[in-house]
Design a protein around this nucleic acid. Structure first.
Lengths: 340, 340
DNA sequence: TGCTAGCACTCCAGTGGACAGAGTGCCAGT
DNA sequence: ACTGGCACTCTGTCCACTGGAGTGCTAGCA
């Protein structure tokens, strides 16, 4: 029924021990390792109650208890003391980031850093296009009927796309197109551009209309539909840490899920500002990840969010530590981005 | 000593059976499944001889035989009949590639295709910069003292890099720099550019000298030192096919190796023209991949090679099938590239 | 000389029983 | 409301045993 303080303390102790030892924890061992101030028998009663309420379960009758997903959830929500990063970790973060040269570099370093610090699988989303603004659009003639469209965003992303023109385009026209496109779109957030692109075509003189229409359709594709989805992944090998046991027998489903960008984006995307989100087991609605938890956070310069990052590991995970690390790294990347 | 025809037939049969069943194969089962025309006892003698010569080994005294790395090597070199692709596979390749829009697209689709067809881990290297030629260089002002350098190659790769200038650069200077750089470098193979970049600085009037020098150093970095190393990976989940047994217990080392781009490049790089290379177990000098084989091939438009691709799987792998697939895909990608 | 049949031998994988250990649930007592 | 004690349950492990698969060797046959 009620969750009095001691029961919560017992749950916390069980989670901590289980995360550390990977073995079901019994009442006796529990009182020995933690100062609970009561006897094993009492703890047993509490355990039974916690099991009744769905926070614990027993692998078999005469084994210790193991937290359920609900148990971890309760632990994360109410029992976690925020663990400050160790100085060593802070230093690792600082050192990891000296001498970054461009966005690719930032993303790759970040994902490795995250994987290394948390010893888990790390995912970092590139700054999402829809939340970025256009800095510059460049048109480069490749052949007489082909242009390369290069878009540079304020977050440093560079997207390119080949544009097949209906007919030959003289170089002066390319200049003119470039001028107009930039005039209209530079500085705009990508999410706001589609109507502008339309007016761009409307305002065009009939002679260049066809060319512009062609360009516009590719622009729309590039700006909104496509390649929202870049991301980087690292630390897959960490899945094997602690045998295959952590993932109920096979890594298969997890590895499969990690291959699907769409799935990963779902996991680390959709973030509310400045929170770190934890999804435990079933909570991340993907069947393949029933036995995994995801800790994720948004990042971006200042208070705005331009992308997500996170780590994935077994439900049996050091939540306080992982949450602290993810949050710290997210903040750090945000700062780095703000400097550009 | 000598490897008469029957012994070779026996070896071939053993490799085929073992690849299929994953179990040590004994003399009796062998004569039952293949028309060898001799008795089990004879086969046993041959097996003993093959073991003596290092092509087979016995997990334990009363078990069947298993091919060694040397056995597979012999099989690949002398016993493989080239297996033509099934029509279904051909169709899969064709269908997989309809509607590609740019290089990223080609590479990503290719790597997935390879993984899917071979049911193994696939790696595709982006067209290597050093073997490509510059198509166009673009300079985009980001702020008064910062330029974005964008390079487009004839293989469709686009590389970008931020250039920090010593002082403010007027827009007319940017145009001038762009003109000169393109005049000198466009059309050149990247490998040939470094001396040209130097002359570019030398020929510059003193007033723009500092700016050009700055640009040149970044150019050199971009052109030769850096980002030779892009590649795509897919099919990691296929490693779990057939339990963990194939990789002597843990996927750990394999997954670790797959995270290191340098290692992957070593595996699929350094290719002689139009051959498909097979590296079995120990042959790929990386400790972590003792239990893995790599089948790789170069690809490129026409007869030139601009990059490598390949698959990685357990030494116990269907070599004829894998080799055929890798070769076919490599050729197909080459054709695709030639069309651009 | 080369192949084969037969035989003794080896080793593994699977089965079943016994047993120690860890952990529980419950009850009676404080 | 907590605790000590006790009976009970279940697992994991060790051991011995057995059937089967596969071998190596030797003697015999073409």
């Amino acid at each position: 029924m009620s969750l009095d303080d001691r029961k919560l303390a017992v749950l916390r102790a069980i989670v901590q021990d289980y995360v550390e030892t990977r073995e079901p924890v019994g009442s006796k061992a529990l009182v020995e390792r933690h100062q609970l101030g009561v006897s094993p028998a009492t703890v047993r009663n509490d355990m039974a109650a916690l099991e009744e309420e769905g926070y614990l379960r027993q692998p078999h009758t005469s084994a210790g208890r193991v937290p359920t997903d609900a148990g971890y959830r309760l632990f994360v929500d109410r029992l976690t003391r925020i663990k400050p990063l160790s100085p060593a970790e802070r230093r690792a973060i600082e050192r990891f980031m000296v001498g970054v040269v461009d966005l690719d570099d930032v993303v790759h370093r970040t994902v490795r850093l995250l994987a290394q610090l948390t010893r888990q699988v790390a995912v970092v989303q590139y700054p999402s296009l829809s939340r970025s603004a256009v800095r510059h659009l460049e048109l480069v003639p490749i052949s007489t009927t082909r242009l390369m469209l290069v878009m540079i965003t304020d977050t440093g992303r560079v997207e390119q796309r080949l544009v097949e023109m209906p007919g030959p385009v003289p170089e002066t026209d390319v200049w003119e197109l470039r001028r107009r496109v930039n005039e209209k779109l530079a500085g705009q957030r990508l999410a706001d551009t589609p109507p502008l692109v339309q007016t761009l075509v409307d305002e065009c003189d009939t002679e260049r209309r066809a060319t512009m229409a062609c360009l516009a359709s590719v622009l729309l594709e590039t700006l909104v539909e496509r390649s929202e989805e870049r991301l980087a992944l690292a630390g897959t090998a960490n899945l094997t840490r602690g045998g295959v046991l952590d993932f109920q027998g096979t890594l298969r489903p997890v590895l499969e899920a990690l291959e699907e960008e769409v799935i990963l984006l779902k996991l680390i995307g959709d973030l509310e500002p400045s929170t770190t989100r934890v999804r435990i087991g079933d909570e991340n609605e993907i069947d393949n990840l029933r036995s995994a938890s995801v800790v994720s956070s948004g990042y971006g310069p200042g208070a705005t969010i331009v992308g997500g990052l996170g780590v994935l590991g077994p439900t049996r995970m050091d939540y306080p530590g992982t949450i602290a690390t993810v949050r710290a790294v997210a903040r750090y990347v945000g700062d780095l981005l703000a400097q550009n």
